[in-house]
Design a protein around this nucleic acid. Structure first.
Length: 267
DNA sequence: ATGGCACGCCAGGCGTGA
């Protein structure tokens, strides 16, 4: 069977609902991993996507974060949060906030995680250390599935550009988050655990960027970075027939600042 | 060095994003 899986940081599922429905109808993914819902679980537009044939497992808590998995090929064994997932202890707060950043499900023959890795804010900020702890918890969470026979992948907004080739100008990012050696080492640890980076093909431009800042004409100038990734085990990666970034979904008004990434499988 | 744009929240700016 062929399976189309996609990931999209949608930057508010309620603000983006018309775009989401339009995209589901045109791209027709079998499974869609969403990040940055920016709504509570019970505020997700379940009925609207159900009309297009999708079951949804959503995990959100309000104005920040939030992840979901939509599937029209089955949705079972849903897990919310990574085992050992750290929370973020904000300045002045008494207890860490366990944020909704990870959800897993089995969709037909494939098991997937949809993840929204913490941003990090600034190098050495408390949020940066939280980010690294979070990525280590992700590594531990995937060990068994990464080594398994069942096709498995982690898809989402990793908030790390794997190499200098994945940012439009490395000089601009020098000393900033998303490109530091420790963040890239965390991705390397995932690869050492048995996952591989499914590289999308380039479309109009040289590199398959997935994010362009809203400001300063980032998209028209193609000032992009590739941070929305598919990290797949061998059975999943061996089944990949194509992968691409849907730049069309980033064009015009009322779009997310991230584009969807599509992966096609023949299983 | 800063701002720039968009979002939720909820009615004036603020926190966050990358």
């Amino acid at each position: 069977m062929t399976v189309r899986i996609a990931t999209w940081n949608i930057n508010s599922v309620t603000a983006r609902l018309p775009k989401l429905l339009e995209w589901l109808e045109s791209a027709k993914p079998d499974v869609l991993c969403l990040q940055e819902l920016k709504c509570a679980s019970d505020a997700f537009p379940y009925e609207a996507v159900k009309e297009l044939g999708y079951d949804t497992a959503a995990y959100g808590s309000g104005r920040w974060n939030g992840v979901a998995i939509l599937s029209r090929i089955g949705l079972e064994d849903v897990v919310r949060d990574l085992p050992e997932q750290p929370g973020f202890l904000a300045e002045g707060a008494l207890i860490p906030d366990t944020e909704p950043r990870a959800i897993a499900a089995t969709c037909g023959p494939v098991r997937v995680w949809s993840v929204y890795v913490p941003n990090g804010r600034e190098v050495d900020h408390a949020h940066f250390h939280y980010k690294l702890e979070w990525l280590e918890a992700l590594r531990k969470a995937v060990l068994e599935d990464a080594a398994g026979e069942r096709p498995f992948a982690v898809l989402g907004d990793f908030n790390v550009a794997p190499t200098d080739e994945d940012v439009y100008d490395p000089a601009v990012f020098a000393g900033q988050t998303h490109v530091t050696p420790v963040e890239r080492a965390a991705l390397a640890a995932l690869r050492e655990a048995g996952l591989q980076d499914v590289m999308p093909r380039a479309l109009k431009y040289d590199r398959p960027y997935t994010f362009w800042d809203y400001r300063a004409l980032g998209f028209p100038k193609n000032l992009g970075i590739r941070i929305d990734l598919t990290y797949a085990n061998k059975p999943f990666a061996d089944a990949v027939t194509d992968s691409y970034v849907d730049r069309e979904a980033r064009k015009g008004k009322g779009t997310s600042d991230h584009a969807p990434v599509v992966v096609d499988l023949d299983l």
